[in-house]
Amino acid sequence: MGVVFGHLSDYASGFWYTVALTLASFLVSLLVGIVIATMRISPAAPARAAGLFYVETVRNTPLLVLLFLFFFGLTKVGLAYSIFVSGVIVIGAYHGAFVAEALRSGVGAVSKGQAEAARSIGLTFSQSLRYVVLPQAFRTVVPPIGNIFIALTKNTSLITVIAGVDLTSAADRLNTTYAQAIPIFFGAAVAYLILTIPSGLAFGWIERKVAIAR
């Protein structure tokens, strides 16, 4: 384990890259998820179709392939985003499809009477979503969103294929130099757990905070 403790600064720089990438992509995924979920439950058929198309294409394509297509494909049409920004957009957009489906299931869990009551007192569709349906939907989807967050955290390691310098890449570089794969990747696993276990606990706390007494 000496190789791990001797290179804590290498792990730290990779760790903070992973933290930044995780938080930024998660924010993007929430925004994308809300927009797409709204489209999927919208009364307008074209919006529903577009939302369905987004979810099914993005969710059913490997993240690795999407990263490649975005990073190397868009430069061919003159759009070159940096490695980090490409990662945030692709990882965020990909998990946004999952967030959208989680939110949609949450909306389904809000009883129909709530939406009907909201509309009957004169709220528009978007108002009824914003003030009545989504706030209740969010409460029921905290656990699945927590799952998506943890999956997203681990999936950020795929940024190494477009030369991102995250935690996995830091471990990989150390391993190239010292050829001690087991302690080095064990160190990386611990670092990921330092990130994911508290976030799991945080989601549990949020879940209890917003729980509806039924």
């Binding site: 190397f72 061919k76 294929v161």
Partner: peptide, 14 residues
């Protein structure tokens, strides 16, 4: 650092 020689070359092409 990329994962293959060809993608590293693709980065050069781009």
């Amino acid at each position: 650092l990329f994962d293959t020689y060809t993608t590293a070359g693709e980065a050069l092409r781009d």
